[in-house]
Design a protein around this nucleic acid. Sequence first.
RNA 1: CGGGGCGUGGCGCAGUCUGGCUAGCGCGUCUGGUUUGGGACCAGAAGGUCGCAGGUUCGAAUCCUGUCGCCCCGACCA
Length: 579
Amino acid sequence: MRWSQTLIPTMKETPEGAEIPSHVLMLRAGLVGQLMAGAYTYLPLGLRALRKAEAIVREEMDAAGAVEVHMPALTPISLWERTGRVEAFGNVLINFKVRRQNKLVHMALGPTHEEVITDLVARHISSYRQLPITLYQIQTKFRNEERPRFGVLRTSEFLMKDAYSFDASVEGLNASYEKMYKAYCRIFDRCGLDYLAVEAESGPIGGDASHEFMVLADNGEDSVVHCAKCGYAANMERADVGQRTIAAPPDVGAALAKVDTPQLGSIDAVSKLLGCRPDEMLKTLIYVADGQPVAVLVRGDHEANEGKVRRALGAGKLEMAPPEVVENATGAPLGFAGPIGLKIPIWADHDVAGMPQAVVGANEADKHYTGARLARDFQVNHFADLRNATAGDPCPRCGQPLEVRHAIEIGHVFKLGTKYSEALDARFSDAKEQQHAVIMGCYGIGINRIIAALIETQNDENGILWPMSLAPYEVVLSPLNAKDAEVLAATEKLYAELLEADVEVLLDDRDQRPGVKFKDADLVGIPLRIVIGGRGLKEGQLEVKWRSKSEPTMIPLEGAAVAIADMVQEERNLGHAHT
RNA sequence: CGGGGCGUGGCGCAGUCUGGCUAGCGCGUCUGGUUUGGGACCAGAAGGUCGCAGGUUCGAAUCCUGUCGCCCCGACCA
């Protein structure tokens, strides 16, 4: 492609509003243009990178035995009603009514496709002989994001590869899951991403039923805990803080005392007023578990984790208690709950046992207790791991302190079980003529996020650093004086030969000064740059420079196309070699 | 949805507090010329309902009210 004949609107300055590196660079390098909040046009360069990521995903899905389909983005609302996800998605589900033959038809744009694919399987699969099968598609998803942000990282319309496995047995599901997990590793390896597969919240199935693929990045929206020593990694919500018993520390001798804390219900406000640290306080949270109120105690500086609480209690449904339930259970308005004298079951996080004394709510408006001591002043019915991990917690595998890192989620694999197959009647007959719900797994990759995460993590002060596998073009030709007949002839010849050799080449044929071409080539980040200038040509040489290296090398003009094609080919293979 | 910030030629900004001549600057674009190995120089030119609407005023980019949009923090996120 000739630069002058495509659209690459590079920018010298950072557009107002772009803050994180990937957003800044995608705009400056002319990869994307914004239409409105959360909606971007992919310009020629950005689209080429996106298509390459898509092709890698497709190749690896096919190699893993998955079969491609393409489902409509437009779906009937009834499908989502059957699985209860109209409520679950709420405002995120973009839905509307259109008039057809004088009747209103209610439909939704698919935010994901479990329902649609399960309906498909329900219609066409009825025997164990048709299983297992994994179907996938690469398609635009729609979600009404409350707050789109970070450039293309969080948009209301995005390209997603979603795959769904269908098995007759749990063992089969595990095998399907394993295949997808491995395919994901190959995909992200080939994309040149530095990623982590972390244990994630797995819902009702439990165990190792869910992994998220994360790229560590300071601007990532997710948090993961990571052990630098043994490599343990987990989603912040999922991370095991450990089954441990903490011995009661010695009594510091403080007596229980009731103090006034007028209007102050928050940990922050009370700690300021009383001059104590949040970790010297107790948070008392009232939940409703399967209709029954329970109290959950965590240290003031910790965050309760609803998933962990639900599992510990063995509850099906868990929610924060509404104000009237809290008042009924504690006798005090929100913000003044405490464990002393509380009549409902009390669960506490392990770390509560390690507090010599604590500031707690007094179950009385505008009052707290200081000096509250476990066993002496209040009782706990059960101890469990009930909180989110924090930096410095011991690694559950090796005990070293964990670190918390921000990350971008680029993929998620999940064992679904029979939630959707039961709701949508996707059943099969086994060899003994018994009917069972098909056992499902689902596997998603955010294609746009592959591009954004790569740019976010692989850039320097001059621009993007593409791996060969995703680069919009593999080689950029930079003739320095396009009007010089000799330069022009050598450039055109090389361009034609490289095209002939199936090298993806961008010819910077603009009548610009060298500095402009170099700056743009660096910004756009094409991996290999070939400079054709009078200086080298006199000696029959071309300059070849990798974007990732600071120094160029010279190669003979004679046979240059073959040499360059070889260099490109070698680099193309690197991604595969990693797997 | 709560908190904060910003809307001025294609891009980046100044001017707004303290209203006042024809709304400026840099980049980019166009024309002519000189240049040609890391975002050139000279000369000239085009391009703006100052987000939108209403109000105050002799006079509004500037003050007031409303509204729309974008960005950031938080809440939410299958």
